[in-house]
Write a protein that binds this DNA or RNA. Sequence first.
DNA 1: CTGTAAAAATGAATGGCCTCAACTTTTTTT
DNA 2: AAAAAAAGTTGAGGCCATTCATTTTTACAG
Lengths: 215, 215
Amino acid sequence: MAGLRERQKAKRNRAILEAASTLFKQNGYEAARIEAIAESAEVSVGTLYNYYAHKADLLLAIVSMEVEEVLHQGESVVAAPPGTAQDAICALIATYYDHSLVYLTKEMWRTAMAFSIQSADTKFSRRYHALDAALSEQVVALMERLQGEGLIDAAADARALGEVIFLALNGLFTIYTLSEDMSLDALKAAMFHKVAALTDLVAVPEEELREQAAR
Amino acid sequence: MAGLRERQKAKRNRAILEAASTLFKQNGYEAARIEAIAESAEVSVGTLYNYYAHKADLLLAIVSMEVEEVLHQGESVVAAPPGTAQDAICALIATYYDHSLVYLTKEMWRTAMAFSIQSADTKFSRRYHALDAALSEQVVALMERLQGEGLIDAAADARALGEVIFLALNGLFTIYTLSEDMSLDALKAAMFHKVAALTDLVAVPEEELREQAAR
DNA sequence: CTGTAAAAATGAATGGCCTCAACTTTTTTT
DNA sequence: AAAAAAAGTTGAGGCCATTCATTTTTACAG
């Protein structure tokens, strides 16, 4: 059993994150006053800053949780992808998109993205982009697996295509968070359309697959 | 000849933009104090805010100038594209990338991108994304022209591919601005590689082009 | 238990963007 | 050309994230 100091620390940390999460969702990131978060967590402002050096770090902790869960779910898709190249890629993307509003609102996502871009060379930016890179690698891993299974053209550059797909899904997600009106379905439709345009070019036609199977 | 009021206004506006541009480049956006910009432009802080409602609007004015010039140059490329699909797409992208540091530093770009994402539904965001959309349309226009000329597969979805290429070039540009170390050449190399992966899939091979010409 | 050091908590003070009520200059009207 | 209106300028002050010198709490040796 840990000492009193450690237990209190963990408890306070949980209280702070809980308070921040609630107030960010309720009032939005900007409108959530540090003083209000501290009060809700029953600590002083100074103490809060002992745990999180910047307001944005509270957000980063929440984003990390979100992306880590999604990476975990994505692994299942890569391990056992649906039948066709197009379905497999879309399934992975849907996993990402569907999870995206569990811990964060669109406004919180926008704020997180903005910080990750604005302040290069901060803990925030490095961590955020590491998470992005992990997602990109997962798409690449799926593309390579599909190529290994003969579902996409052996001559295609699976890595380059995977990276392009990630850049596109990421860019569209940004657009999605920018419009309160755009639905998750509209986002998926837009992205799936782009995936279809790409897979039309690289997917091995079913007849060829059957021929291969026959051999 | 315009009245005194108008002339003074134009003069003050120029002085403010000049001062902002200089101080942003010199010290970076964040470090440039509004008070210093006002002083350098020989107006009061209140007057500066009469011309630009937010510090960020000063930046937006500079970004607009940059993108409008690049769109203009891009038109020439679309009007008379180089010989192959790959060369044409890369030429357009190089036009964009090469111009990018004329008025802005990487830090200024990051700040502008961050604002455009964070504050949806502000004048800043709307204007920035309109410029982005115009660039995306220009890439689509090139792709459609290439398809019209028979340089890329008639069955391909030129619009979807153009949009994917734009999302990718935009995403890579973001990465470029995030690392002070990454050179323009490294950026171009990374993007050209991705373009090659795509054009390999859709470009009509030269032998076919010759056949078509023979007919 | 007591004394002492280390760790943590505290909240008043600071710095920088932006506002606004009062003032000045230019234009229009009489 | 005087008066009124319109347009523009001004800078002290408000707000809020963040800092830091001081106080309080915990750990632990004697």
